[in-house]
Amino acid sequence: MFTSASIKELEKIRAKYPTSRAALLPAIYIAQREFGWLSPEAYEAVADILEVPKATVRGVATFYAMYKQRPIGRHLIQLCTNVSCMILGAEKLVDFLKNSYGIVPGGVSSDGRYSLVIMECIGACGTAPAMLVNDDFYEDLTEKYIAEILDKYK
Protein backbone atom coordinates (compact mmCIF):
# COMPACT_ATOMS: atom_id res chain seq x y z
CA MET A 1 0.00 0.00 0.00
CA PHE A 2 1.17 3.48 -0.83
CA THR A 3 0.88 6.38 1.62
CA SER A 4 -1.83 8.87 0.79
CA ALA A 5 0.79 11.48 -0.16
CA SER A 6 2.25 9.08 -2.71
CA ILE A 7 -1.19 8.22 -4.04
CA LYS A 8 -1.85 11.91 -4.62
CA GLU A 9 1.53 12.36 -6.26
CA LEU A 10 0.83 9.45 -8.56
CA GLU A 11 -2.57 10.81 -9.52
CA LYS A 12 -0.91 14.01 -10.63
CA ILE A 13 1.62 12.05 -12.65
CA ARG A 14 -1.11 9.96 -14.27
CA ALA A 15 -2.87 13.09 -15.45
CA LYS A 16 0.16 13.88 -17.61
CA TYR A 17 -0.39 10.82 -19.80
CA PRO A 18 -3.24 9.54 -21.96
CA THR A 19 -2.86 6.00 -20.51
CA SER A 20 -2.30 4.90 -16.93
CA ARG A 21 0.24 2.34 -18.12
CA ALA A 22 2.56 5.23 -19.06
CA ALA A 23 2.75 6.08 -15.37
CA LEU A 24 4.40 2.72 -14.67
CA LEU A 25 8.02 3.91 -14.60
CA PRO A 26 7.26 6.84 -12.29
CA ALA A 27 5.13 4.55 -10.10
CA ILE A 28 8.03 2.12 -9.73
CA TYR A 29 10.25 5.01 -8.69
CA ILE A 30 7.73 6.01 -6.05
CA ALA A 31 7.47 2.42 -4.80
CA GLN A 32 11.23 2.20 -4.55
CA ARG A 33 11.36 5.40 -2.57
CA GLU A 34 8.62 4.27 -0.24
CA PHE A 35 9.63 0.65 0.32
CA GLY A 36 13.40 1.22 0.01
CA TRP A 37 13.66 -1.40 -2.71
CA LEU A 38 11.38 -3.42 -4.96
CA SER A 39 10.15 -5.88 -2.37
CA PRO A 40 7.17 -8.15 -3.10
CA GLU A 41 5.00 -5.59 -1.28
CA ALA A 42 6.33 -2.82 -3.51
CA TYR A 43 5.43 -4.78 -6.64
CA GLU A 44 2.01 -5.51 -5.21
CA ALA A 45 1.39 -1.84 -4.52
CA VAL A 46 2.31 -0.76 -8.04
CA ALA A 47 0.28 -3.52 -9.65
CA ASP A 48 -2.78 -2.65 -7.55
CA ILE A 49 -2.74 1.05 -8.09
CA LEU A 50 -2.16 0.96 -11.86
CA GLU A 51 -4.20 -2.21 -12.42
CA VAL A 52 -1.33 -3.85 -14.25
CA PRO A 53 -0.45 -7.55 -13.67
CA LYS A 54 2.32 -8.02 -11.10
CA ALA A 55 4.33 -10.05 -13.61
CA THR A 56 4.26 -7.12 -16.01
CA VAL A 57 5.48 -4.73 -13.37
CA ARG A 58 8.31 -7.10 -12.50
CA GLY A 59 9.15 -7.67 -16.15
CA VAL A 60 9.46 -3.95 -16.76
CA ALA A 61 11.27 -3.15 -13.53
CA THR A 62 13.96 -5.81 -13.98
CA PHE A 63 14.83 -4.35 -17.40
CA TYR A 64 16.12 -1.11 -15.90
CA ALA A 65 19.38 -0.79 -13.98
CA MET A 66 18.20 1.88 -11.58
CA TYR A 67 15.39 -0.15 -10.07
CA LYS A 68 16.67 -2.00 -7.05
CA GLN A 69 15.85 -5.68 -6.72
CA ARG A 70 17.56 -5.96 -3.35
CA PRO A 71 17.65 -3.81 -0.22
CA ILE A 72 20.28 -1.12 -0.40
CA GLY A 73 22.29 0.87 2.10
CA ARG A 74 21.21 4.23 3.48
CA HIS A 75 23.28 6.01 0.84
CA LEU A 76 23.71 4.95 -2.74
CA ILE A 77 27.12 5.49 -4.33
CA GLN A 78 26.97 5.30 -8.11
CA LEU A 79 30.50 5.36 -9.46
CA CYS A 80 31.25 5.53 -13.18
CA THR A 81 33.99 3.31 -14.61
CA ASN A 82 33.31 3.81 -18.31
CA VAL A 83 36.20 4.76 -20.59
CA SER A 84 36.57 8.49 -19.78
CA CYS A 85 36.52 7.75 -16.05
CA MET A 86 38.56 4.55 -16.39
CA ILE A 87 41.51 6.22 -18.12
CA LEU A 88 41.60 8.76 -15.30
CA GLY A 89 41.77 6.17 -12.55
CA ALA A 90 38.19 5.17 -11.69
CA GLU A 91 39.12 1.53 -11.15
CA LYS A 92 41.63 2.48 -8.47
CA LEU A 93 38.75 4.21 -6.73
CA VAL A 94 36.73 0.99 -6.83
CA ASP A 95 39.66 -0.71 -5.07
CA PHE A 96 39.86 2.14 -2.60
CA LEU A 97 36.19 1.75 -1.68
CA LYS A 98 36.71 -1.95 -1.22
CA ASN A 99 39.87 -1.67 0.86
CA SER A 100 38.90 1.28 3.01
CA TYR A 101 35.18 0.81 3.43
CA GLY A 102 34.61 -2.84 2.62
CA ILE A 103 32.11 -2.00 -0.12
CA VAL A 104 32.17 -4.10 -3.26
CA PRO A 105 30.32 -3.35 -6.48
CA GLY A 106 26.73 -4.45 -6.13
CA GLY A 107 27.09 -4.81 -2.39
CA VAL A 108 26.24 -3.02 0.84
CA SER A 109 28.72 -2.06 3.56
CA SER A 110 28.37 -4.22 6.65
CA ASP A 111 27.01 -1.31 8.71
CA GLY A 112 24.31 -0.73 6.09
CA ARG A 113 25.55 2.78 5.47
CA TYR A 114 26.55 2.60 1.80
CA SER A 115 25.69 0.68 -1.33
CA LEU A 116 27.94 0.75 -4.35
CA VAL A 117 26.81 0.44 -7.94
CA ILE A 118 29.17 0.65 -10.89
CA MET A 119 27.68 2.89 -13.56
CA GLU A 120 27.90 3.12 -17.30
CA CYS A 121 28.65 6.80 -17.98
CA ILE A 122 26.87 9.37 -15.84
CA GLY A 123 27.58 12.32 -18.15
CA ALA A 124 30.38 13.90 -16.15
CA CYS A 125 33.24 12.84 -18.44
CA GLY A 126 34.87 16.27 -18.60
CA THR A 127 35.38 16.18 -14.84
CA ALA A 128 36.18 12.46 -14.56
CA PRO A 129 36.33 10.37 -12.48
CA ALA A 130 32.84 11.02 -11.19
CA MET A 131 30.10 9.55 -9.04
CA LEU A 132 26.64 10.25 -7.73
CA VAL A 133 25.88 9.88 -4.05
CA ASN A 134 22.11 9.71 -3.80
CA ASP A 135 21.08 12.62 -6.05
CA ASP A 136 24.31 14.62 -5.91
CA PHE A 137 27.11 14.71 -8.44
CA TYR A 138 30.75 14.61 -7.31
CA GLU A 139 33.45 15.11 -9.88
CA ASP A 140 37.26 15.21 -10.24
CA LEU A 141 37.42 12.46 -7.62
CA THR A 142 40.50 11.40 -5.71
CA GLU A 143 40.75 8.97 -2.82
CA LYS A 144 41.08 11.84 -0.36
CA TYR A 145 38.09 13.65 -1.83
CA ILE A 146 35.94 10.50 -1.69
CA ALA A 147 36.78 10.07 1.98
CA GLU A 148 35.69 13.66 2.66
CA ILE A 149 32.47 13.22 0.73
CA LEU A 150 31.49 9.94 2.36
CA ASP A 151 32.02 11.45 5.78
CA LYS A 152 29.04 13.71 5.12
CA TYR A 153 26.69 10.80 4.53
CA LYS A 154 25.99 9.27 7.93
Binding site: N82, S84, C121, G123, C125
Partner: peptide, 9 residues
Protein backbone atom coordinates in the same frame (compact mmCIF):
# COMPACT_ATOMS: atom_id res chain seq x y z
CA UNK B 1 22.27 11.19 -23.26
CA UNK B 2 23.66 7.74 -22.61
CA UNK B 3 26.44 7.45 -25.16
CA UNK B 4 29.62 7.12 -23.06
CA UNK B 5 31.74 10.25 -23.31
CA UNK B 6 28.73 12.47 -23.90
CA UNK B 7 27.87 15.35 -21.59
CA UNK B 8 26.75 18.01 -24.05
CA UNK B 9 23.01 18.07 -23.30
Amino acid sequence: EGEPGTFKD
